[in-house]
Every structure is written in structure tokens, then in C-alpha cells.
């Protein structure tokens, strides 16, 4: 994850409390989604950014996961994301995200 974005995530977690934050991702692939999710839960796996070794355990989802999709107005979701659902491997994204959440998320 971009270093500036990591810095912002860390600052917001300090400001609002990690339990009050939800991170929503838009990554193009399962693995990239998993890496971003790992970054905001268990720390930056690439050891490059401000979240290295910082285990925030934030609640994190991909926009295409059913937990988030069902909360969004259907027509808006369709307008903003609908067609990308045909392009992305949603099952792969869900399985990567679920695995990371189960292992590292502290606020489910």
C-alpha cells in the first residue's frame, strides 16, 4: 500500500480509535486486496511503510464483498461497480479477504 495512504490510516486510527474505523478496498485482484487488508490489520507485509509492525486489526472489506454490497443502494452499486463485477474475480477476492479478516481483524 502507498506509504502516504498507510500514514493516513495510522493517523485516523489514532484519532478515532481503531474500533471505530472500517477500511473499504477496491483492489483489482484477490492477492492485492489481501495484501492491503493485511497492511491495515497485521502491518505492512512489505516492511516499507508506516504500518510496518503496527497491528491495527482494523475492520476491512472489499467493496464487492456481500457484507458491504448489501448495505449499498442497489441502483447506485449497479451504476458504480456493476460492470466491474463482470471483470473482477469476486470469489478470489472474497476468499483472500475472509482469510485475512479471520486471522488478523480485531473488531468483527
Amino acid at each position: 500500500m502507498d506509504l502516504e495512504n498507510q500514514k493516513r490510516v495510522k493517523e485516523f486510527a489514532e484519532k478515532y480509535g481503531a474500533e471505530n474505523i472500517v477500511v473499504i478496498l477496491g483492489a483489482a485482484e484477490g492477492e492485492a486486496a489481501g495484501l492491503a487488508a493485511e497492511t491495515v490489520t497485521n502491518g505492512d507485509p512489505t516492511f516499507a511503510g508506516p504500518l510496518t509492525g503496527v497491528q491495527l486489526g482494523l475492520s476491512v472489506f472489499h467493496i464487492c464483498e456481500p457484507e458491504i454490497k448489501e448495505l449499498v443502494d442497489e441502483s447506485i452499486y449497479d451504476e458504480q461497480v456493476g460492470m466491474m463485477e463482470m471483470v473482477l474475480d469476486i470469489d478470489d477476492i472474497i476468499s483472500e479477504m475472509t482469510a485475512i479478516r479471520e486471522e488478523f481483524c480485531k473488531y468483527l
Binding site: I21, V22, L25, G26, A32, A36, C64, Q80
Partner: peptide, 10 residues
């Protein structure tokens, strides 16, 4: 809510 989108995803 913190949103981290992707140019080639959403």
C-alpha cells in the same frame, strides 16, 4: 470509513 480504491479495480 477509509477508502483505498484502485485505478484498475474500483
Amino acid at each position: 470509513i477509509i477508502i483505498i480504491g484502485d485505478r484498475d479495480g474500483i
